[in-house]
Each structure stands twice: as structure tokens, then as C-alpha cells.
Design a protein around this nucleic acid. Structure first.
Lengths: 246, 246
DNA sequence: CGTGAGATTGAACCACTTCAACCACGGTGG
DNA sequence: CCACCGTGGTTGAAGTGGTTCAATCTCACG
């Protein structure tokens, strides 16, 4: 039932230096290599469901996923956007507290749960990397709380676009962007709304507003070109030296 | 200039089984004992400032503190409420990304930064506990994002009171509360607003509304008695089996 | 082409904010 | 001992940003 992808060598892995394996030496890498398996799933696939057991932990190798919670009445909030090198799962706990859904076709580097927990226990380089990544995610989650709690719709959208631009650039290993940047939107307007705590209509209106103000271009439904990075950063309430945008 | 408190034995420490030392054996504890120092500061003291270096990491032993960010125009968002056993500081990074302020008189169990980073490296029981605590905080931060992004003022306040009730009970080692519970508010209405992403006036109005609806009593400015835990949980959008409130 | 899902736009509404007045209480000094 | 502030909290009335409801548009895919 589960079709597994061929396992590629860690040495050739695109997320080798960013994922949980980033600090590993050659011998540790070959140990991970024996434990891992790959899996590619189509867009829309649930990778985890809130409260339900998770048989595997994974690193996201390719594609994009969202972590979210849905309230009983249908309101949904995305609490994290997962891009390549991000980790899915919570060592020490068998269930995920959130839903995780593939926003595009996604390739995962997977480890059986208990095997991975043993690896974390026995491999300080993995444990230490996991701690660093978790601390980074915690900072990002708290930064996002500032956006959700205190920013206007326009500021939220600007912050989101900047955040996405930065993360997409950093995956491709580029410096802080400036000037014109094409941002690939890996999600629908509805999912953007769920991420920003806004309705689909507000998202649409704010995109139009930023476009009419000459801050962005909208070449297609799933692309936005930032025309002036610094001006957009100003819209997001970032005065350049102050607090990070998320 | 810094008056240090007498160092109390880890064995008698009120947070012995919840803080970063929770997993430590006797010999590890005595190693921590040699490195630690105590400090008590009055209400309002800044324990860390966003972007500025932090000389010590600490566990909060007694009292209450808030982690927050203030935007240039004065808008503020609290991103975490720190209660006894919570950890302040970020191993691997010299600066705090947020302000931390004492909401009451606070007693800290402190470790010099680089010494603590060495301890984390050399003591798997501390590193592992730190990872667990960080993962728990990450879940809590994401739960809070749902509150900030998708809940109404009334739901936010209910969720806050429940969260506070649970955490205050768990510090005193009690089971899930039900029926009447007295919650000590460690903060002003303004700080509650900053935490919930609301104005002081809205906080006040919603407290009045919950009181008039018979869900809470307000014996004093800094106390709220929950009259019916389950009814309040319902107000917070928690149907009892579903998602946690934070 | 025709269809339908996703996106945009418009208009009315409402929850929360803003601005402003008033109240309660604790501390201070006459 | 009590009038006088001052600070923090409550309440009221008006304003507004974002939602809701609804119509129209776009374009990928039969």
C-alpha cells in the first residue's frame, strides 16, 4: 500500500546541512541512512492528524506543508508553515497535537518513531540539532503570535510575504533579499487566511491594495513579486533595525 | 550591586521535579548546585531585553514573569507567561529575542551563560529535559496562536482563565480542576490585554459579561473565581474532548 | 466552448477599538 | 482623621477594520 521511494544518499541530500542531520559526522550519517526511508505524497495528503498516533517522524525534503488546528465550528488556524528541512513529529510523544497537511507534492525522509527516539537518545549530534531547531521554531512561533495578536490585515500580509521570501531565499542559500523578488505562494487564498487569522476576502482585498500601492505585482494566482523589499518591510511595521518579522 | 540570595539545596527546591533539573541524578544535582546562584528581584524588574545580551540563564523559582515584544508605535504583545519552573534564556544564543519582565517579586535560580551551555553539552539529562520543556513550550505557543488568531474576545478571556487555573493548580500538584476555583491574576488589565491581543476596555467589559452570566466571580482586582469550570471551558470553544485550550 | 472551483469586488453589518467620562481605592499630607 | 490626589478599572458612545453575505469574474480543464 505504501509505495516507497528509492533511498538517496545523505551526501547528495538537498537538506543535508539544515535538517536534523546537519551536525552529524560521516559515521552518524550512515547510521541514519540505514534507518531512513523516503516517501512522496500528492498535494492534500494529511501527514498527521491532531490527536492521532504518528508512526513515523520525518524531515520535509521537498515541497511544503502546513500545521493547523480546526475548531469544532470550522474555524481553522495554521500554526506553522513547513518548508524543506523542517521536522515533523514530536519525540517523546506518540501523537501530534496538530494536523499536518501537504500543500504541494511532498517528499519526506522518514524514521520509524521508536527507532528515531532511540537515535535521539544515543546520538548527541542529533539531539543537539533537534534542540536548536526546536528553539528556532519556538522563536518563530512567538514572533508569529505578535503578528496574529497585534497587526492589521495589511501588516499581516506584508509580514507573511516577507517571511516567505526570506525562507525561500534561505533554502536556495541566498542573502537577505532586497529589490524585486518573486515569491511562490504554496497555498490558496483560503489557506493564507487560515495562516493569518483573516478571511479569504480580506486576503484578496489586501493583495489588491498592496498591488495598487505599487508594492507588489501579481503575475499569477500562485506568484507574487515583491517590488520593493524595504518598503514592504516598512508596511509590516519593521523599521529596519527593530524586531524580526517572523 | 547585585545582592545574591542564600543558595538553598536542590533537594528542598520547590521546582526540583519540574525545572531543567527534573531528570538529574544526585551527582548531577550537586554539579548544578555548585554552578547556581539565586537572585530575588522586585515587581517590574526587566529580566531580559529584546536584542540585548543575557549574562545568565535562569529557572523561575517563585513569582511570575511575562515575555513580550513591543512594536515601535507602542503596541505590545505578550508571547509567554512564565511561572515557577519555567526557563529564561536560549542556550546557543547570547541575546533574548523578547523582553522578559517580572510581574511580581521573582526569585531566580541562575547560571552563568557559558557555564550553562557547557552543562547542557556535557549533561544529557539536562539537555534532554531542556528539549522536552522546549517542545512543550512550542506546543503551548502554537496553541496560543490559535487563541490569538481565531477566537473572540470572550473566548480569549475564558481560555486565558482556564489556562491560568490549570497551570496554577499543576504547580500545586493538583488534578484537572472542576467546580469553583480561585485564580490569582498576576497582572493588570493592561497586561492581560497585551497577552490576549485586546484593549484594556475590552478585557474589562468581557470580565463584566462573564460575571453577569454567572460564570465567574470577581472578589478583588487580582482574583477571579471560576464558578463552573466546564461551563467556562465551553465558552472557550472547548467541547471537552477536543483540542486543548493552551 | 461549457463548467466549476477559486478569486475578486461590492455593500451591509458587527465586534472590537477609540475617545472620553466616571468610579474605587490606597496612599499622603495637612 | 479625613480631604486630596493619582492610578488603575469600569462604563458609555461613536467610529472603524474586518467579516459576512452575495454577485461577478477568471481561468484551468473537460
Amino acid at each position: 500500500m505504501t509505495a516507497h521511494d528509492p533511498v538517496i544518499a545523505c551526501g547528495n541530500c538537498p537538506i543535508r546541512h539544515n535538517a536534523i542531520c546537519a551536525e552529524c559526522e560521516a559515521d552518524e550519517l550512515s547510521m541514519l541512512e540505514r534507518a531512513k526511508s523516503y516517501k512522496t505524497v500528492p498535494v492534500g495528503t494529511p501527514l498527521a492528524r491532531a490527536g492521532e498516533p504518528l508512526s513515523h517522524f520525518s524531515s520535509l525534503v521537498k515541497g511544503c506543508a502546513a500545521m493547523s488546528r480546526t475548531l469544532e465550528d470550522g474555524r481553522r488556524q495554521t500554526v506553522g508553515l513547513l518548508l524543506p528541512s523542517d521536522f515533523i513529529g514530536r519525540p517523546g510523544r506518540a501523537t501530534s497535537p496538530f494536523d499536518v497537511t501537504a500543500l504541494s507534492e511532498v517528499t519526506l525522509c522518514r524514521f520509524e518513531r521508536t527507532a528515531f527516539e532511540r537515535i535521539v537518545r544515543d546520538t548527541p549530534h542529533v539531539a543537539s540539532r533537534l534542540l536548536t531547531m526546536t528553539l528556532d521554531e519556538l522563536d518563530a512561533a512567538r514572533d508569529w503570535a505578535v503578528v496574529l495578536g497585534r497587526m492589521t490585515a495589511r501588516e499581516k500580509l506584508a509580514a507573511f510575504l516577507l517571511n516567505l521570501a526570506q525562507r525561500q531565499r534561505s533554502i536556495r542559500g541566498m542573502a537577505r533579499p532586497s529589490g524585486k523578488i518573486l515569491v511562490a505562494l504554496p497555498m490558496s487564498r483560503e489557506q493564507m487566511g487560515d495562516h493569518l487569522g483573516l478571511t479569504i476576502e480580506t486576503i484578496s482585498r489586501q493583495i489588491t491594495a498592496l498591488r495598487k500601492d505599487g508594492l507588489i505585482e501579481v503575475p499569477s494566482r500562485q506568484d507574487i513579486r515583491i517590488l520593493d523589499y524595504d518598503a514592504l518591510a516598512f508596511e509590516a511595521g519593521d523599521d529596519g533595525d527593530g524586531a524580526p518579522i517572523a
